[in-house]
Write a protein that binds this DNA or RNA. Structure first.
Lengths: 190, 190
DNA sequence: TCAATTTCTTAAACCAGTTTAATATTTAAG
DNA sequence: CTTAAATATTAAACTGGTTTAAGAAATTGA
């Protein structure tokens, strides 16, 4: 249920059995069917979400009325619209499950309360956020440096399983390609 | 000297006068002339940098042997190659001053020591990192959504002073434009 | 002050990737 | 099992932005 979360926390800080009980007071576990929404455009992103098992996507509706995916989240990953979460402002994003998914969520208020009750958890969240910044710096570098074809090749080489698991048009969206161009690149690659 | 840093910290947490003395034990203040380097490709990014006054840029050398800027840092901003900092691996980036700049730096080791001695500082750094993630999510959204022309207009409208302060070719680099195209857009805009 | 270097501008030829418009294949629902 | 809906493929016309190649203007250093 929240095994993966506690496992991950213990990679960075000590967490006693009693601490674990405290954390459980504040978090929520959820089972999602495919295509269930956690967040809608126009609503405040009031929770942080941790994926225990499954896959989420975060997307917005662009000017041409189509879905533009900016992020996926797999097992062990946190996901949220952090701007909305921190400023309590309406989000421009949707967060939706791509398949059956188990998550842990914690609301903004409970997050504050938890960190007051267990301040050493601040270190875990600081590290997680640092890793997220590192990952986004890395991704920005790739996007500046590579053509879209190169980025596709890099991505499909790095995450072959993911490529099978998620609809191709979603991967195209995430990579900033049209589905048509993606088909062309797939053909080329064989 | 580190006024801006302490000012910023106090926006998020309480920091006593004594705490401030402790922090001063761990940090380093530096004056940089224009074009001085803080980080070279191939070296480990062993410090976090905070800009008290001035402007830094972070860039890498791309496949065509030209400089690709991925980030600027102005007064009140932290900057580092976080992947290199956290993993103690050689960086692919340079960090350089664009003008005379005052910074505060803290090495990886001292960062750990400081947080052990003043654990409530973890909250400050967690918040700063969350804000950085929020900013990178926002920027990714803009880049997916806007043409380069639109992005240029958005940026020059949002940061008119910055546009005057920094060489145009650097802004072009950061926006992912060629200097030639940028000239064209500037002409169009008049 | 002058020469060297850097930065900015100009414009035509070029192209990575998109748009448009189907068609084919696969998946989901009843 | 059949139909509807969703996903993937195909290809030609199109375009936002780059490359190439100067020349002009501004800044820097001695």
């Amino acid at each position: 249920m929240s095994d993966k979360l506690f496992q991950q926390i213990r990679k960075f800080i000590d967490l006693s059995a009693n601490d674990e009980l405290v954390v459980n007071k504040y978090i929520n576990t959820l089972q999602l069917n495919k295509k269930e929404f956690l967040l809608h455009d126009g609503k405040v992103c009031n929770d942080l979400y941790f994926v225990e098992k499954g896959c989420l996507r975060m997307y917005f509706i662009n000017k041409k009325d189509s879905e533009q995916i900016t992020q996926f989240a797999l097992d062990g990953w946190w996901i949220a619209d952090y701007m909305s979460f921190m400023n309590n402002t309406p989000s421009n994003y949707y967060i939706q499950s791509i398949e059956k998914t188990e998550i842990v969520s914690i609301s903004s208020q409970k997050f504050d309360d938890l960190l007051k009750e267990l301040p050493h958890l601040e270190k875990y969240f600081r590290i997680i956020m640092q890793k997220a910044v590192a990952a986004s710096q890395h991704r920005a570098k790739l996007m500046y440096e590579m053509t879209k074809e190169e980025f596709y090749i890099h991505f499909s080489t790095s995450f072959p399983e993911f490529m099978q698991r998620v609809p191709q048009y979603m991967i195209a969206s995430y990579l900033g390609l049209t589905p048509e161009y993606m088909s062309e690149l797939r053909k080329k690659k064989l």
